[in-house]
Amino acid sequence: MLLIHCPYCDETLPEPEFAYAGEAHIDRPADPQQLSDEEWRDFLFIRTNAKGPHYERWRHINGCARFFNAVRDTVSDKFLTTYKAGEARPDLAKLLEGQK
């Protein structure tokens, strides 16, 4: 079972407390009227689906209910880090260095 660290509660808790919420850092278009069909497709449907470290959103649904972000390796399912919504993408090279 995944153990997930909520950066708001600052506690590491079992997976059933959390809901997965898809890829992180996908910005809503600033000016939707101007988007081409290709841009809409990319925004709505295209996903990185990374094999390896993946930036993703989780929600502490059965706890504080807040959304936060995580980097998880999708091959081992191991979390490299979790961080608050709105914070910048952590630097992957540094994270991987920290894992060694």
Binding site: E15, E56, V75
Partner: peptide, 13 residues
């Protein structure tokens, strides 16, 4: 399972 993965395993919940 609720999360994407390539682990061919999945979780016990």
């Amino acid at each position: 399972d609720q999360y994407t993965s390539y682990s061919q395993r999945g979780g016990l919940p």
